[in-house]
Design a protein around this nucleic acid. Structure first.
Lengths: 339, 339
DNA sequence: GCGGGTTCTGGGAGCGCTCCCAGACGTCGA
DNA sequence: TCGACGTCTGGGAGCGCTCCCAGAACCCGC
């Protein structure tokens, strides 16, 4: 009998079993939500757990069981930090909220500690049961590679390098479409867009929505300038648009952060907003409400995004059948002063 | 002999021992960098590890050992989400970077799954070796409570409810002092401040710096209005200041996000920035560079903050002696157009 | 009555490590 | 020469769970 070592504090499953008047096995079954446990035992176990303040030992469960009880959140961010920040925090909050209560640990990976092969080796090495991959650049091969190893994954944001990887994304297309329809309903007749880069699905989907909205009303779709999700590039794009069409009366900007740059240029040129030019952004980030004038924008629920992502992965891990391969989350228009 | 269960892939310590021609114990010693291992054995073990591609099982180490090989990042955010977001992402990146390579897992806790007692029970229940507590509200009792249980912790941001809890913080005092000195060097003579709430150390320290800077030059320190880290409250505060001193020529605003509101009010009243009124913010968040005009502000290295926080905790866990009880990180002034 | 199923239960062998113990060597001073 | 002490080593008992097995209890139809 070794008594010299310091034991970890807190009760273990054995105590719970004794208090509940059942065996270890039964307690384990209750904790893991297995069937074949009588209602009576289940209640007794729950009572005992509450009474003792028991919480299962993660390491022991992982060691003994066949699963890792952990999922990874892989942030595959390449450069576009600006876009990532507020977005990222919201997503994380959502992921965390969805994980609450389940005994699943969240491992963060940020494309730093291990690169390429090592990262893949770690993820497929049994340390995690699945992964959430938030990939900002559509061309990123990581989601596909991971998926092909058989590790359950869900990608946040439609991957351009497609395949059949399950993903969750905001409904960028319909968000943009709604924004354009709104501008048209205001009587605007010359609607331009500052689009995102062509290698990001988020940019392309918003552009498609804009195109579709104009096409519905037989309006021209020439006034497009691509930009890269920074304020400065947004400003440059706006200048280009004004050069091509000084008489435009509305701009749909694919991201709030670019809209700030556009706003600056418009104001410097003496355009009144929204009287002369209406501006609609996308994201509804903090930037939108603090802009001058406050930005009308398409809102996406970032926290909900994180939750859905997680839910989808957990459902797959739980062996649920017939899960949708992809999910698009609704967006909504937030009216402020810029349109 | 149970052979039905599926074993995890990869070699275990036993194989390494056999290949190296030593015992399990010796391999374990090498892995953990203990002394009392001959150079010969050490080399042999390293070779065997490389050859087999062995990587120790985290769960087993944790279960068998006396430490959890994990630390918690506790985000004690109460409402002030706006402040939290960009800050938070940066801190997380820093924490993660510092953890890279060591076999320490990061657990996220966000004041959601378990509250109060439960959270404390979990943290002190041996699931983690220590905790990083990022507490935005100075009055939060959590840091102190945790510290008193004996769990090694480091607090991000000076806790008001002090005690002797180790903490890391930006040097808010000197940052503010530098900003005021800069304004004075520009020849400004009536320098107001929009301060943070009185229950947050970050607000109070910046206010002290402002006071000190003015006192150095025998200037009055009456023009203070407290606000709450939102743009709207910043605007309100600016209005109040202008009512009290329409002829002020500079404002030091304790956060960029409040500065946006102040900027709006100043511009609406026809003040030219920086000609009539110079504005200096704090944080150097995204907001600062996208403001109109771009904001001169005090920069704090948020990622470095996360790194330092983590470094301090790991050092303590490693048993290092004579660690500083608190650490203040340098700030720097970023000149843009508003001052 | 009997065989067959389904529901529920406890016992106990491991999961892959760490860490204690006991012991085999040295090396040194008395 | 002897012990005392420091260095190095292997053996093996757990860490706290899960999951397999065997079996008890109960249902059903024939």
């Amino acid at each position: 009998m070794t008594e010299g070592r310091t034991r970890r504090p807190g009760p273990r499953i054995e105590e719970v079993a004794r208090v509940a008047g059942v065996s270890k096995s039964t307690v384990s079954r209750v904790i893991n939500g297995e069937k074949y446990v009588s209602e009576r035992s289940r209640q007794a176990v729950h009572r005992a757990i509450a009474m003792l303040g028991y919480s299962p030992n993660h390491a022991a469960r992982t060691l003994a069981g066949s699963k890792a009880n952990a999922i990874a959140l892989v942030i595959s961010e390449q450069g576009s930090r600006v876009l990532a920040d507020p977005f990222f925090a919201g997503v994380l909050r959502g992921v965390h909220a969805e994980l609450a209560g389940r005994h699943v640990q969240l491992l963060l990976m940020m494309n730093q500690p291990l690169d390429g092969e090592d990262q893949i080796a770690y993820l497929t090495g049994g340390h995690v049961d699945g992964a959430l991959v938030v990939s900002l650049h559509g061309e990123d091969p990581l989601p596909r590679t991971l998926h092909e190893t058989g590790l359950p994954i869900v990608v946040g944001g439609r991957p351009l390098a497609g395949g059949s990887v399950p993903f969750v994304d905001a409904d960028n297309f319909n968000g943009a479409l709604g924004a354009v329809r709104f501008l048209i309903s205001l009587g605007r007749e010359k609607i331009a867009t500052i689009a995102g880069p062509v290698d990001m699905a988020v940019g392309m989907d918003r552009l498609s929505g804009w195109r579709c909205g104009l096409a519905e009303h037989g309006m021209g779709v020439e006034l497009v300038v691509h930009s890269d999700f920074t304020p400065d590039s947004g400003a440059l794009a706006m200048e280009e648009l004004l050069r091509r069409a000084p008489d435009l009366d509305a701009v749909f900007v694919a991201a709030d952060i670019m809209a700030l740059g556009a706003l600056r240029v418009l104001q410097a040129r003496g355009y009144r907003i929204p009287d002369d030019v209406a501006v609609v952004g996308f994201d509804d980030s903090v930037l939108a409400s603090t802009a001058v004038p406050p930005l009308t924008t398409v809102r996406q629920d970032v926290e909900g995004f994180g939750r859905t992502l997680t839910w989808r992965l957990l459902a797959e891990l739980a062996g649920e059948e017939k899960l949708p391969q992809s999910m698009l989350l609704p967006t909504s228009l937030v009216r402020r002063s810029s349109a």
